[in-house]
Amino acid sequence: MNTLIVLLQIAAAVILAPLVSGLIRKIKNNLRMRKGASVFQPYYNLAKLFRKDEVISENTSWIFAAAPYVVLASVLVAFLPLSFMGQASFLNYTGDILLVVFMLSLGRFFLSLAGLDAGSAFGGMGSSREMFISSLVEPVMILSLFVVGANSGSTNPACIAACPAVRVSGLIAAFAFFMAMIAETSRIPIDNQETHLELTMVHEAMTLEYSGRRLAIIELAAHAKQILFFTILANVIVPFGGIITYPLKIIAISAIIGTLEVSLAKMRLFRVVDFMTFSFALSIMAMVAWAVGL
């Protein structure tokens, strides 16, 4: 029974995921004094893409065809150990919070291969940059998750969420994780979701060859990944409230992301190293703070 509830929660999260993206876009547009599209625009985009025919490059192999499904499935599996309402179910045995990092790297691995599969220089460039950025992000994620885990004595998300004391080390870790999240959800200043200009794009370049149904799946997976990160930040790293405050926290994070995106400019690719070094230093600081008992 509990397993079913958890699965329903995941389904709800995935269904609501595009709404969060729409919300961020709306916030951004309003900040720019524009009216902007409806918050439901991501759904319209998805519906349109799902109905469209696909054009597949003649150079591609089964990797290209399979990658979107692997990406979506890996994000969904990453949801399994996180229980939104703290239900203990059979699925808690899937793994711990570290599994999330590994599952996401599974999806990324296949998407990067798919980027190389069509033989276009754009795809290759996107894959190369994506792997570059993600390899710098991974230590930050692991370290900040280590700190919040250490605060509760376990890397089991349920244990972490059940330990609601807000500590200095946890907050620093949350900040480091937030920076990692910006990189992972391809937001400004690391990447820009709004542009298809070849010099700046990372994630979009990898998926350039996709169309129709498969593109829709990749976009859905990207939305789901975003809400996955928001959920970790809301429920695991800053754990208080519960199911009631959860939507409020998601909206707050969306507002922060939207504001940041409007007020910052995108960085040059090699400045990302500095950005990630800073967040890495932050996570080390969080570790030190935890070690001395803060």
Binding site: V77, N92, T94, S154
Partner: peptide
């Protein structure tokens, strides 16, 4: 206490979701 990992469930879930 309470740290779990199950590769069979992960594999099963991956194929199931796909």
């Amino acid at each position: 206490g309470g740290i779990y990992l199950s590769t069979p469930i992960i594999a099963l879930a991956l194929f199931l979701f796909m």
